[in-house]
Design a protein around this nucleic acid. Structure first.
Lengths: 405, 405
DNA sequence: CTATTTAATTCGAGGGTCGAAAAAAATAGT
DNA sequence: ACTATTTTTTTCGACCCTCGAATTAAATAG
């Protein structure tokens, strides 16, 4: 809106449109692309023949899986993304775990690698070596030419800078300002970016279930800490300087329970794993949160609740109240939207849901009780999918940009 | 990004660019426009000659107030927006007051009109008649041809739908879902839109002080209730269905003081005028907020505080704590940004600031204490300016759209 | 084997922006 | 007074892009 448009940038934009239509559609004909994008058949023809010439699209021989509109007429020719056009590297750094994958340009995973380690005890260099080494392994076992690697996306539990170069802060390590993107770029000589894992989960859901999560929703991660990925009107929301949307550090009880961040009363200080455990075991709200290395098992808490332990049940309900109250504040800002709850914490959702909905009751829109809330216990596939997706989207943009020679 | 671009839409976008460059610049030459927008001299020449032919730009005879780069060379020809190209109507509906103005296409106010009335006692029809009548008066006294009126912008204290057609809810009247835009359109046969006053103040500040408020900031209105206008990365933030950003109804104390909205613990229930008064006079937090018609004078509260009344001072400090805590939550979502406090409530800012800053202390970014906070006591000029601005921006877009015949 | 139907490509027409050259309008210098 | 210089603005042709219409391609129905 605020920048000049030149003729060649028109083609640039429309190339991107075609590329993403094919990526979404899987196997689509040129006519389908025209219908989806609104471009004329002539233009689609011109753009696709460019993209095929450049090797980004192919006409797979295994043919017309595209159903014809009717039996008659010239059959549609299916186009698809060329899996061999590029490789991307995906690296996921979680509490006590590093994993990596090599994904082809169609989004299919070619090879994987993973290691358990004690993330809190690693030096800066060890972190670098662990991430680089894990991707190197995946790359070696992929059987692909390493020169096809075009881009690397890194997922971390923690706060990144908004440009995706640094890990600024993380619960899984005491180090700060780690230049993860720079490390990966140096090691593999391709561009790299770092993203917050909650953002990536949200991206994955946004792609996976567009009817429910296509425009506006939040994914809230309940595990070590409370994170959020927020989509509004189809765009992911980030902070002005950081990855932002730290739902867990909105204030629930001013001056209340001690949070891992050092402040008091954060949502996380009631709904984070350590907070629920602290309350379930009857410890003081002032009890300092455990060290990052201490993995807390939600099953233990779930077992207590199932056994009818009132303190555990109350702890979980308070977590729900914190989350629900946070949502009320969020909804006051931008109105209500569906929620995806993700992670181990969702195994106690049954005890949590009533207090979430009670907090939402009578919220601004007047319809707090029928907010869509769905649970996803295992976050790993979502993170991996979102991570690959992010790199592919950026790659598509670069390809759309590529000047025709 | 997600929609086809055609050649004629390129011109459309660049026409808009030129138009807004001239609107911003006041008196600018074609070369200046080229420099500002990035368009080539050839294109600027083509577009400006179109816009001059269509009557939207003029070359004022009162000449070269544009300073030449050096003495030598062909002098710059100043261009400016043609004030006579259009008129817009501005209508402002506040507690017990309706005002209207006629503004020309350059943004200069031509005539005004205002009436005191008891907004809470008006029927739906009386509201319509008051708004229509007030603008009609301004229009009559403008001495301009009414047919030049192109668009009407209405400002209201309250919540609108996101498309700007309805007043959904307001503290100043018990009526709901008032089709204000429709009423104005019917009465004057031109398009109309309704906006939340806090959004308009934010727009005015955004234009008026771009160095501080050009990209990201919030304007918080402290008067009857607590409203907010929020800019992030240069865009105003609204709700998904409503005008949104109801800062005053984020939760400060779950289950706490009774708010006018019927819920408990909202920021407004501590920082709204009625809430500060309630606390200053030692009334219960459960005391129902007064009726909309009851205008509460902040001077009374300020006087008490100046006289050293501890209850009043504490009430104001609590208001500051509520605002500061709300900002912490907001900053957790999108990082910190400057704040403009607007309205009568700012006359007690001195008592409020320490508790705001204390709440911000140690907030996510780690630098809560050096947040820019500035006060603007009188909101009226900001609302009027923002209201006119909004209509002019939309008008500019329509003009940019206008197909060349 | 022909008519019909649908898909994809080709070919101007039309609209845009841009760079280079030309024209316009002033000052500086002799 | 006249010419050279400088800066702004317009004009002109080259090039890019999308689109509609016509054409070509490739199948089925009868």
């Amino acid at each position: 809106m605020t920048v000049v448009i030149r003729s060649n940038e028109v083609r640039r934009g429309n190339r991107g449109l075609v590329l993403s239509a094919v990526r979404m559609g899987g196997l689509v004909s040129r006519t389908d692309i025209g219908r989806k994008t609104g471009l004329s058949a002539a233009t689609v023809s011109a753009i696709t023949s460019d993209l095929i010439a450049d090797g980004f699209l192919i006409q797979p021989a295994d043919a017309n899986q595209v159903p014809a509109s009717s039996g008659r007429g010239r059959p549609k020719v299916a186009l698809s993304v060329n899996p061999m056009a590029a490789l991307i590297g995906v690296v996921i750094f979680q509490l006590n775990r590093v994993s990596a994958a090599v994904v082809d340009y169609s989004g299919a995973t070619i090879s994987e690698s993973a290691h358990e380690l004690s993330s809190a005890d690693l030096s800066r260099e060890s972190i670098r070596d662990a991430l680089v080494g894990c991707l190197r392994e995946a790359l070696n076992s992929s059987g692909q030419n390493e020169r096809l690697l075009m881009r690397i996306a890194v997922s971390i539990q923690g706060v990144t800078d908004v440009s995706g170069k640094y890990l600024l802060w993380s619960p899984i390590t005491d180090h700060r300002d780690l230049p993860l993107a720079g490390w990966m770029r140096q090691a593999f000589s391709v561009p790299a970016s770092v993203s917050n894992d909650c953002d990536l989960m949200a991206r994955a859901l946004n792609r996976r279930e567009p009817e429910l999560y296509g425009t506006s929703f939040a994914s809230i991660m309940l595990s070590y800490g409370v994170g959020m990925g927020l989509f509004l009107r189809g765009n992911i929301i980030n902070g002005l300087n950081t990855s932002g949307t730290e739902f867990g550090h909105m204030v629930f009880q001013p001056g209340g329970a001690l949070c891992r961040c050092g402040r008091r009363g954060c949502i996380e200080a009631y709904a984070g794993d350590y907070a629920i455990q602290r309350a379930a075991l009857g410890r003081s709200e002032d009890a300092p949160p455990p060290a990052p290395s201490a993995h807390i098992d939600f099953k233990q808490i779930a077992d207590l609740a199932h056994a009818g332990d009132p303190q555990a049940i109350h702890a979980i309900e308070e977590a729900g109240r914190a989350i629900g109250t946070g949502l009320v504040s969020l909804f006051a800002l931008v109105d209500a939207f569906p929620i995806a709850l993700i992670g181990q914490g969702t195994i106690v959702f049954d005890y949590m849901e009533p207090s979430i909905r009670k907090a939402l009751q009578g919220a601004v829109a007047g319809e707090g009780t029928n907010i869509d809330i769905h649970c996803f216990v295992d976050e790993k596939p979502l993170v991996a999918e979102g991570c690959a997706l992010t790199a592919l989207v950026v790659l598509d943009e670069e390809i759309a940009d590529a000047a025709v020679i």
